[in-house]
């Protein structure tokens, strides 16, 4: 349910950066372990964007799979959950990916 607030943040940040220019697409990166449901952002997006410079823009969400590095054995492996251990049994991990929540780019319509 916090995705509504997250979506508002996305729209506000992009609208601010667009400085009145029309935004046609926004690329957002959402880690699968970020605690944010990409689907819920998409669900909220149109409503939140209404009446802003972002209205009508397309939203592309790139979901990033979880990956970690094991401090015990050095292996790099996929972490589908926050409690996936390394194959060696260790849970002493450095998380490499999967917790992203970032606006990567926006595309603007240029006055030709």
């Amino acid at each position: 349910m916090h995705e509504l607030g997250i979506t508002r943040n996305i729209v506000a940040i992009v609208a601010d950066a667009a400085k009145g220019r029309r935004v046609t697409r926004i690329h957002v990166e959402v880690g699968k372990l970020s605690g944010i449901l990409a689907q819920a952002i998409v669900f909220c997006f149109d409503v939140v964007a209404q009446g802003t410079a972002i209205e009508g823009a397309a939203l592309s969400i790139h979901e990033v799979e979880g990956r970690a590095n094991c401090r015990a054995c050095g292996a790099e492996f996929a972490t589908p959950t926050l409690f996936t251990p390394c194959g060696c049994g260790s849970r002493d991990l450095v998380r490499l990916a999967g917790e992203e929540l970032k606006i990567k780019t926006m595309e603007l319509e240029e006055a030709a």
């Binding site: 690329h27 606006i103 780019t105 319509e109």
Partner: peptide
């Protein structure tokens, strides 16, 4: 990189410009 890459996929002919933001959604 993303700029060039995605640009070539999406909008080869249109007058559109991709701007890198790289901003955390919860940065504020």
């Amino acid at each position: 990189h993303t700029h060039d890459h995605e640009h070539s996929h999406d909008h080869e002919q249109s007058a559109r410009k991709t701007i890198s933001l790289e901003q955390g959604v919860l940065a504020k």
